[in-house]
């Protein structure tokens, strides 16, 4: 059984159709990334799956239950990192993590989780005094403290410095290695490429493309660009047979600054939402 199964999901706010018929399948143990421009309906979709928002139409099953009716046990199997939060400002990091651990049957060790998200140095600081990226790490800590089977992360790495982002990727990979299912939204295409088994691109409340990061929208078969520097400046050739092109060109001697590139996930993405 899939961890998440969605069919024909719709949700409108005062006449504005935020989600306009979404189908989604996320297998158990899969890392799934939802991409899409601001206002595409990512948060709305994710919060419906979390049980935070109602829906107008569609079938939704998360860990076998309908989020609109699911109870305590169901929630104990989920971990949720919301897009933004500023709660627990007057608790220290350690107090907050320890407190939220109490809600679960078999929580992770609070100190371990604080270490995992890289907040050990800030364990005794009040949450309200953390920097943006540190606050976000606390949100991640609170999201995984209950040893969830399925984790929702809505733009988890907003405000992370590059090192913290790499560190976070490692954390997600280790969760995935333990068999945790992960659904995340992100605006960082390199993040989706590094983490996700599959991605979906949401635009205007609809899924416009879905696949692995490597093959999304025919990316794997797209023409490559061969580029080099000649005495007339940079030259570019788009071709489906780059090896052959280079073999031809190299007969005339060494090619300066030779590169072969395929469209990046970002190129494919920008094309999709254009």
């Amino acid at each position: 059984m899939n961890a998440i199964r969605v069919r024909g999901l719709k949700k409108a706010y005062k006449g504005h159709q935020a989600v306009a018929g979404v189908d989604l399948d996320v297998a158990r143990g899969e890392v799934f990334a939802v991409l899409g421009p601001n206002g595409a309906g990512k948060t709305t979709t994710v919060e419906i799956l979390e049980g935070h928002r109602g829906r107008d139409a569609g079938e939704v099953s998360v860990l076998g239950d309908d989020p609109a009716r699911a109870g305590r046990v169901w929630r104990s199997r989920l971990g949720i990192v919301l897009q933004s939060a500023s709660d627990a400002a007057n608790l220290t990091v350690h107090e907050a993590v320890r407190h939220y651990a109490k809600y679960y049957a078999d929580p992770r060790d609070p100190d371990e989780v604080i270490e995992l998200v890289g907040l050990a140095e800030k364990a005794k600081s009040r949450a309200g005094t953390l920097s943006g990226g540190q606050r976000r790490r606390l949100d991640v800590a609170l999201g995984i403290i209950g040893r969830p089977e399925l984790v929702f992360l809505d733009e988890p790495t907003t405000g992370f410095d590059p090192e913290a982002r790499r560190h976070f990727w490692g954390l997600i990979k280790s969760l995935a290695a333990e068999g945790t299912t992960i659904l995340l939204t992100t605006h960082y295409l390199d993040e989706a490429e590094a983490l996700a088994d599959r991605v979906a691109v949401l635009a205007g409340g609809r899924i416009v493309a879905e696949g692995t990061p490597q093959t999304l929208n025919g990316r794997a078969h797209a023409d490559a660009t061969v580029r080099w520097l000649s005495d007339r400046g940079y030259q570019e050739v788009r071709t489906s047979e780059p090896t052959k092109v280079i073999a031809e060109l190299s007969r005339h001697g060494e090619l300066a600054e030779l590169t072969v590139t395929r469209p990046s996930l970002e190129d494919v993405y920008l094309e999709l939402i254009a």
Binding site: G51, H52, L78, I80, L82, A85, S86, D87, Y100, G146
Partner: peptide, 17 residues
Amino acid sequence: ADREDGTLKRLRGTPMP
């Protein structure tokens, strides 16, 4: 304040009754 700063929303996402 709990509603404004997201405390309630976070709690609702946990198994807390």
